[in-house]
Amino acid sequence: MNAPRPLLLVDAPSLYFRAYFGIPESAAKAPDGSPVNAVRGFLDMLATLIRTRRPDRLVCALDHDWRPAWRVALLPSYKAHRVAPAGGEVVPDTLVPQVPLILDVLAAIGIPAVGAAGYEADDVLGTLAVTQPGPVEVASGDRDLFQLVDDAHPIRLLYCGRGVAKLEDYDDAAVRARYGVPATGYADFAALRGDPSDGLPGVAGVGEKTAARLVDRYGGLDGILTALGDPASGFAPGLRTKLEAARDYLAVAPKVVRVALDVPLPDFSTALPAAPVDEARLLELAEKWNLASPCRRLVDALTDAAA
């Protein structure tokens, strides 16, 4: 009996940012000279994922709110370094107009691109991962999504830190091998270690190895903080001092790091389209923006997956 085919959940912002920085603007331009490097790269990444993972369902998740107010209220430093002087996220000027074009192509093909007000793409991915039938594969270069890995569902992370062509397939054993903690402990581990890319300071003087050892020994932050209140718990004096100084941070950081699993989402079909739903519109976009080759590769991947 053939194994069930997966639901492929794609972190669209993660991939199109990587595409933008991975392909020179000079190598991908529309007839009018506009750069389309992010679009071309994203479509090719999507085609590669479909061809190699052979899903029968597919959803692209979007950031409708890249820095949700509820996370900032808990931790004001959250992504603060990425706020533009005029507000909003710092995004390269030549990437901004490419995002709507990516969405136009996805709509013409019939691939759902879903976001939710007040939530990040991570939260959309998390909600779909736990509410949709498995198997589920989440494609992203965001380390926070290691927390979604669940062998029982099953949910795997296709980590694209080195690109889609070199993606790393993570189950719980692989997460443990890389970080020394199970996927269920990753959010607490990340809060302890910190993540400068998200404005998470972590606990001063606590690196990956110490964070992993603490999570492994005490089961997570609740256990760590409980043990911290016990003078006989065996913490080294220096470590105890560091953790005590970070109590206020540790009370809120895990809530910031943890992916929301209950985001209200619209009704839509996750079924992988076998052919474009609006071929005329896709041809129009392909011709106008010099995207014939990546669009063809994506359509061919869809056709092959449906066969």
Rank of each mutant, 00 (worst) to 15 (best):
P154E: 10
R143N: 08
G118R: 13
I109Y: 11
R162N: 12
P182N: 13
Y170Q: 08
G118Q: 11
R178G: 01
A173T: 11
L103H: 11
V114I: 14
D151S: 05
A165Q: 15
D104L: 04
F146V: 04
A139E: 01
V124D: 13
P112C: 07
A116F: 06
V130G: 07
Q147V: 10
A108W: 00
V164W: 00
D172R: 04
D123T: 08
L125Q: 03
D123I: 06
V175L: 02
A177V: 10
P154Q: 10
R176F: 12
D104R: 09
V124R: 08
L103G: 06
A113S: 10
L128Q: 02
R162C: 06
A113D: 09
D169W: 05
R178F: 01
P182K: 10
R176A: 12
G141P: 14
A107W: 02
G161F: 12
I102F: 03
D122Q: 09
V138M: 03
D104M: 05
F146C: 05
Q147G: 04
G141F: 14
V136T: 02
G134A: 11
L125V: 09
L148I: 05
D151W: 06
R162I: 12
A116I: 14
Y170S: 02
L148T: 03
I155Q: 09
L158Q: 03
L103C: 07
L145A: 04
D144E: 15
L167Y: 14
A152I: 13
Q132C: 04
G115M: 10
V114T: 02
D150F: 11
P133S: 15
V114P: 01
V181K: 01
Y119N: 01
P133I: 11
G110E: 06
Y179G: 11
L167V: 06
E168I: 11
A116V: 10
S140P: 15
Y170T: 07
A117L: 12
A113F: 04
A107C: 10
Y170F: 15
Q147H: 07
V130A: 02
P135Q: 09
F146Q: 00
A116Y: 08
R162F: 09
T127Y: 00
R178C: 02
G161R: 07
L125W: 12
Y159L: 00
A174E: 00
A177H: 11
F146E: 00
D150L: 10
L148K: 02
Y179F: 15
C160M: 11
A113H: 05
T127P: 00
G134C: 08
L158V: 09
D123M: 04
L167E: 15
R143Y: 11
D144Y: 07
P133W: 13
D151M: 04
V124L: 12
K166A: 14
E120I: 12
V136I: 04
A113I: 08
E120Y: 06
Y119R: 02
T131V: 08
A152W: 09
G161P: 05
D142P: 04
R162T: 13
L103T: 05
A165W: 13
G141N: 15
F146K: 01
G185F: 09
D171L: 06
L148M: 07
D171R: 15
S140Q: 14
D104E: 13
L125A: 07
G110Q: 09
L148F: 05
Y159P: 00
D123N: 03
D171A: 15
R178N: 02
I102K: 06
G185H: 08
